[in-house]
Design a protein around this nucleic acid. Sequence first.
DNA 1: CAGTATCCTCAAAGATACTG
DNA 2: CAGTATCTTTGAGGATACTG
Lengths: 116, 116
Amino acid sequence: MAARTMLPVHAAPTCSVAGAAEIVGSKWTVLLVHDLSEGPRRFTALERSCEGISPRTLAERLRWLETEGIVVRHSYAESPPRVEYALTPKGQALLPVVREMRRFGHDWLGCGVHET
Amino acid sequence: MAARTMLPVHAAPTCSVAGAAEIVGSKWTVLLVHDLSEGPRRFTALERSCEGISPRTLAERLRWLETEGIVVRHSYAESPPRVEYALTPKGQALLPVVREMRRFGHDWLGCGVHET
DNA sequence: CAGTATCCTCAAAGATACTG
DNA sequence: CAGTATCTTTGAGGATACTG
C-alpha cells in the first residue's frame, strides 16, 4: 500500500473498522505497539527492533502515536538523557488486535512460529 | 500512512505480525473483508459500500486480494454479466482481526455504535 | 542518547472517460 | 455491469548528516 492517509484521525471515520484501520494501517504502528506490549522501551531499542526504520520515521510515528493517546513519552533528565515510551490504556486496548494479527500470520503466512 | 509498500507479500516478513500488517495495512482491504463477511458481493455493491473508492482502486485491491488467496472471484456468463466476490477460508480467518478492530474502534474512537 | 534537518523517491490511489 | 486506460497528485517514509 502506499500513500495511505494516515493522519485524518479526528475526522471521525464512518465506521469503527475504518477508524481502527487508520491506526492499525501502518506496519510500523502495529510493530511498535507489539514491541511496547512487553514494557517501556527506549528510542534506540525500538529502532533496533523495527528492522529498517529510519530515525526520522520512528520519531514521526512515535509523535503521532502520542497525539493519538496510544503511547506516552517519559523523559528523564539524566545524563545521558533517557526517554522511554510506553503504552497507554488505549494503546493496550490495541493488543487484542495485534494478537489476532499474529495468530493469522502464524496460521496462514507460515511465519512467526518461534516468535513472541 | 502513506506510500506504504503494500505488495511485497511473498517476501516472507520477519514476523507474523508484520506479515499480517502487510495485509491488514490498508483501509480498503479491511473494509472489503468486512463487507464480504456478510456474503458474496458484486463489484458495484462493493463500490457503493466503500465510500469514495474509485473503480480503478477497487479493481486493483480485489485483484491483489485474489492473488493473496483472500478473495475468490466468481464470474457468471450471463447477460448482463455478473461477477461476485467472496471470502476464501483464508479470508475468513481474517475476521477475528476485523472483529477486534471494530471493538477497538467502538470502545476508543467513539464511532460505529450502530453499525455492523 | 535521542532525536532534527534536508532532500528525494516512488507507489498508492483519486479523477475522469471509455469499453466488452 | 464490471471493469480498463490515462494522467496526476500526494505524502509516507528511506538515506544521510548533523546536534543538544
